[in-house]
Computed example of a mutant assay.
Amino acid sequence: MPRISVLGCGRIGRMHADNIATHPQATLAGVFDTHAPFAAEIASKHGVTNFASALEAINSDDVDAVLIATPTSTHVEFLEACVKAGKAVLCEKPIDLSLERVNALAKRIEGTKVPIMLGFVRRFDPGHAAAERARAAGEIGELHQVTITSRDPGMAPDGYIKTSGGIFRDMTIHDLDLARFLLGEEVTEVTATGSRLVNPTLMDECDDYDTVVVILKTASGKQAVITNSREAVYGYDQRIEMLGSKGMLVTDNHHNHSMKKYLATETNVSSPLQHFFIERYGAAFDVEISKFVDAIENGAPVPVGFEDGRLALLLADACFKSVAEGRTVLTSEFA
């Protein structure tokens, strides 16, 4: 079983460490975080090494692979260190906030045989994955439209918003990757619009948006529409529809349980939506680790690689350009 170290012990790193430690096909080798108490807690919980530095967690002879869950600004450095060390790497999105830096890294690691996987976990959601397989099998005929609804239950903390790179790079980027996955074709045109409806002061604070719509188009005319909001008061809203010439595919929200109430005063009342991404995509995170292990142990191709991460960031940049210039942006403009 591959021995995997985890860099970063914040919310998502902690979840990854727990998943690896309990995964039947992987071993948690150790953890590292610049905030020592976080790493010490996880290392103690699982009885693993608390590495003194990120490079030690990468280069240790007791480590076969690395999962990067550190701040985005460190991803390029740690990714390159993993490649140099010959260690397979699973990196949380995005690779970086700068497409220029990502392109430069792509050139430096060109030709590497080291497995590099990106953490676009929504591809592994059982419903989303089943929909993609049904589309590929022709069950709905020729695909025409993909509709992705993705809304957070509430605004992220101000500190996160100000350093996130903006909604298109930190939130919509998941849906941009999912759209590429579901369309089965590359996007050639991007049209985006953004508003500040939840927090009107975002313009003054960080020139960002909290409510956005993106329209993607492929060369053959297939369309994807992405609807994002930073705040849906009813919970974490995650749905997709795929319309084809012979029918439609739908994957819906997840609830805490499936019971519904029908009373004299109200009908079809369901339990709340699952709270946030760790709960909603829990099964997908488990599949993600299994896919990573398969790439390490059996040489299977990573299902979502470095180039997928680069293209998702390119589409995010195209969204910002579209909003700023009030026009449809061609992806060829970034070539």
Rank of each mutant, 00 (worst) to 15 (best):
Y160E: 13
K162I: 05
A134D: 07
S53T: 09
Q223A: 08
H16W: 11
S5A: 11
A295T: 03
A312K: 01
I116V: 10
I173D: 00
L55W: 15
I68Y: 05
L79H: 02
L197H: 13
V187S: 00
G194C: 06
I58S: 00
H257F: 14
P200C: 07
I173R: 03
F334I: 00
L182S: 03
F38M: 14
G282T: 11
H255D: 01
P303N: 12
E186H: 08
R122I: 09
H144W: 15
V214P: 00
D62T: 08
T267K: 12
D158H: 06
P2G: 06
F120P: 10
V293K: 04
V233H: 11
T211S: 14
G244N: 01
S271L: 09
R122P: 09
H275L: 13
K113Y: 08
H128K: 14
R180W: 05
Q25K: 11
A69Q: 10
D210A: 07
T70C: 11
G86H: 05
A130I: 05
A57M: 00
I140Q: 06
V102P: 08
H128T: 15
G154P: 01
F120G: 08
V63Y: 02
R310A: 07
G194A: 04
D125P: 09
G221L: 08
G30K: 03
R151C: 15
F292K: 01
T112R: 09
I161G: 05
P115G: 08
L313I: 01
P71A: 05
G47H: 07
Q274I: 13
D317T: 01
G194R: 00
M1S: 13
G309S: 03
F38P: 01
N19I: 15
D175R: 10
D210S: 06
C82L: 08
I140H: 06
A36V: 15
E279S: 12
A88Y: 04
L330M: 09
G194H: 02
P24D: 05
F51H: 01
V287P: 10
D64R: 04
R169I: 03
V187I: 11
L183Y: 04
P71S: 08
E307Q: 14
D125Y: 11
H174S: 03
L249Y: 08
V187F: 00
A264I: 08
A284H: 07
I278C: 10
A136V: 12
V121A: 13
M171Q: 14
D61Y: 06
D62H: 09
K45P: 02
L90G: 04
